[in-house]
């Protein structure tokens, strides 16, 4: 494991415990007329982590990395091939229905609502399905309708809702029964900027008010930046990073950029390696340096030798960092076959 292990608690405080969990799929491929070749695909390969109650964790990785498989095991609809898994002390695949009362699931690309019924009818079914006490149901519905601005949509059949409206409707549906943990799979996919911001704000609020544990898979790194305090990166079924978002820069060996405005045009400023000037445009110069190093030394050095007017430091694009991380692993790891 190349990542630095982040702030994971001991198992006493853990709400989600994943210990050496694997999932192996048998895939059969046709070879010739009758012959079929069987081989195994390791979708999740010995993953371990714990999530404390009330944590908001981002779970990212390229397509096919094993994110959805992990979520499916955590909800109990897939049984792990090996390892130990507990959510709120429950073994998900053994007691899927019991666990279902305590979790909420939101899929960006699928809906849990009934498309030909008004939104409110779906909520009424949830009320019965999760056996939510009447008073609690009314209270939660009122709160969610207000926070997610669903008031005008309740009587509208779901098929007539826009994507953003439907998404908000789906999130409300997942929270009516006060789940202790909320799994979100690409909750902002296809949404416009305003809707995205709204969903993220709402998630932060729910977490603050109810201490709902949130596990979020996404391709949109802004989701992670704005919602999650911790991020886990999975690739080829393995956890390659688990820790604070900030630490990802260092692990990814990303570079930060110091942008300096000098009094007038200069040739590229002299800086000690590995820092280097990457661009010059009139009096403005861009100096790249390792993200793990503080900028202060570099700033002092330039200020001593050149007439410095202004400066700013740009953080590396997190997306670039992760892309680099994936690429590095792909180059290093030999293609697995079993």
């Amino acid at each position: 494991m190349s990542g630095r292990m982040g702030t994971t608690e001991g198992s006493e405080g853990a709400f989600i415990e994943v210990d050496g969990v694997e999932k192996v799929f048998d895939v059969r491929r046709r070879k010739g007329l009758l012959r079929r070749e069987r081989h195994q695909v390791r979708a999740v390969d010995s993953i371990s982590f714990t999530v404390a109650r009330g944590e908001m964790v981002g779970y990212i990785g390229p397509n096919g990395a094993g994110k959805s498989t992990t979520i499916k095991m955590l909800t109990g609809i897939l049984t792990p091939s090996g390892g130990r898994l507990r959510v709120a002390g429950i073994d998900p695949s053994r007691e899927r229905t019991r666990l279902a009362h305590r979790i909420g699931v939101v899929f960006g690309q699928r809906t849990t609502l009934w498309w030909d019924l008004p939104l409110i009818d779906s909520y009424k079914l949830m009320h019965r399905m999760y056996r939510i006490p009447d008073a609690r149901y009314r209270e939660n519905l009122a709160r969610l309708v207000e926070l997610l601005d669903l008031g005008d949509l309740l009587e509208v059949p779901v098929r007539q809702l826009s994507l953003g409206q439907r998404m908000r409707g789906d999130i409300a549906a997942a929270l009516l029964h006060d789940p202790e943990v909320l799994y979100l799979d690409e909750p902002t996919i296809g949404l416009d900027v305003v809707s995205k911001t709204r969903v993220r704000e709402f998630l932060r609020q729910v977490n603050a008010e109810r201490a709902t544990t949130v596990l979020l898979t996404t391709h949109d790194l802004q989701d992670i930046e704005q919602v999650c305090s911790r991020v886990m990166v999975i690739d080829h079924g393995r956890l390659v990073y688990d820790g604070a978002l900030a630490g990802l820069h260092e692990v990814g060996e990303g570079e930060r950029t110091l942008v300096v405005d000098l009094e007038r045009e200069f040739p590229p400023v002299e800086v000690p390696a590995p820092a280097r000037v990457v661009r010059v445009d009139g009096p403005r110069q861009w100096v790249a340096f390792p993200a793990s190093e503080p900028a202060a030394g570099l700033v002092t050095r330039i200020a001593e030798r050149y007439p410095l007017v202004d400066l700013s430091v740009r953080e590396p694009d997190i997306e670039a960092v992760i892309a680099q991380m994936y690429a590095e692993r792909a180059g290093r790891a030999p293609t697995q076959s079993s």
């Binding site: 909800t75 849990t112 399905m129």
Partner: peptide, 13 residues
């Protein structure tokens, strides 16, 4: 379509 997964997340038979 795989939507059946949604049904399986529910506490219903």
């Amino acid at each position: 379509t795989g939507e059946i997964a949604v049904d399986l997340y529910r506490p219903a038979d």
